[in-house]
Computed example of a mutant assay.
Amino acid sequence: MENLIDRGSDRPWQGALLDKKEVDEIKTKVMDSDEVYQLPKSDYGGCANDEEFIQAKSTIPNILYKLNGTKVVCVIDEQGNVTDFEFTQAPKNPAVAKELERCLKLLKYKPAIYKLFTVKCKWNFWYDGNKSLLPEVPEEPEEQISNVEAEKKVEDKVFDTVEQQPSFPGGEGAMFSYISNNLRYPQKAAENCVQGRVVVKFIVEKDGSISNVEVNRSVDRDLDNEAMRVIKNMPKWNPAKQNGTEVRAYYYVPVTFRLK
């Protein structure tokens, strides 16, 4: 019997029927994501992505800012549950790691498909967090700088750490929704099944405009360029504040490309 239809997949498996031993092996094996015919898929509970979902579900305020560099390897099982967590790079606070695991377990996926079967699939989550929490770079001594030059330097300074972070109009959820609605998957990357999370660094100016957009963590040239395009076209932000005054500040945003 040939040309069997692969349920739910847009890439039908063309092959002969399998015997029971082969079926049992498929059902028990944990597949790599590049082995399956259809990757796991989630609607993130109505959120734009996993970051927005975690922020909404977490009992720890601003948990995303505490996940800087966190990497998690897990499994999406044949029922679409997130299981078998392993932190390859864990947050400093064990309570944050435990809360992240709790939130990820709340996610529900359509499971991966291999041939005719829903299967277990290895899955990765990676969180850049907010690099604006990094310590400021020490400034050069100003003994020889005139008052005018000193004022100009302060005015032009770009802050890494500020009392009030810059924010997208409507909040972080609105920002991720904007990105999701305006992102166009590059055709070449889609054809080559290239996926990943591009981290974009930029400056929010004192008037809320975006400048100096660059890639902080690259995945692929086409994905990098598309991520920068979306960030550059963002509406004006609410600027950062230091001592009650609007200042220039760095900000980092992860842009996720995932084929559906």
Rank of each mutant, 00 (worst) to 15 (best):
T161N: 12
T161M: 14
T161S: 14
V162Y: 07
V162D: 09
E163W: 07
Q164A: 13
Q165S: 11
Q165V: 06
P166V: 04
S167K: 12
S167R: 12
S167Q: 12
P169G: 01
P169L: 05
P169V: 10
P169Y: 04
G170P: 03
G170L: 11
G171H: 10
G171P: 10
G171S: 09
E172N: 12
A174E: 07
M175V: 01
M175G: 11
M175S: 13
F176T: 00
F176C: 01
S177K: 05
Y178A: 01
I179N: 01
I179P: 02
S180D: 07
S180F: 08
S180V: 03
S180Q: 09
S180R: 13
N182Y: 09
N182W: 04
N182G: 05
N182K: 07
N182M: 07
L183K: 10
L183M: 14
R184L: 15
R184C: 08
R184G: 04
Y185H: 04
P186S: 12
P186C: 11
Q187S: 14
Q187K: 15
Q187N: 14
Q187E: 14
K188F: 12
A189M: 04
A189T: 08
A190G: 12
A190F: 09
E191C: 04
N192A: 15
N192I: 08
N192T: 14
N192M: 15
C193V: 11
V194I: 15
V194W: 02
Q195A: 08
Q195M: 13
Q195D: 14
Q195F: 11
G196N: 06
R197F: 02
R197Y: 06
V198Q: 03
V199L: 06
V199W: 02
V200D: 02
V200E: 00
V200W: 02
K201H: 10
K201T: 01
K201D: 04
F202V: 00
F202N: 00
F202L: 02
I203D: 05
I203Y: 00
V204P: 11
V204E: 00
E205V: 05
K206P: 15
K206H: 08
K206L: 08
D207A: 07
G208A: 05
G208Y: 00
S209C: 04
I210F: 09
I210Q: 04
I210E: 03
S211R: 02
N212F: 07
N212M: 08
N212V: 03
N212P: 00
E214Q: 13
E214I: 02
E214K: 07
V215Q: 05
V215L: 05
N216A: 15
R217S: 06
S218C: 10
S218K: 15
S218I: 06
V219Y: 03
D220N: 15
R221I: 15
R221Y: 14
R221A: 13
R221V: 11
R221Q: 14
D222F: 13
D222Q: 13
D222S: 14
L223D: 06
D224N: 12
D224K: 02
N225A: 14
N225H: 12
N225D: 11
N225S: 14
N225W: 10
E226H: 07
E226Q: 11
E226N: 09
E226R: 03
E226T: 02
E226Y: 00
A227Y: 00
R229N: 10
R229G: 01
I231V: 15
I231T: 05
K232F: 01
K232C: 08
M234I: 04
M234P: 00
M234T: 03
P235K: 11
K236H: 08
W237E: 04
W237K: 03
W237P: 05
N238D: 12
P239V: 07
A240G: 10
A240K: 02
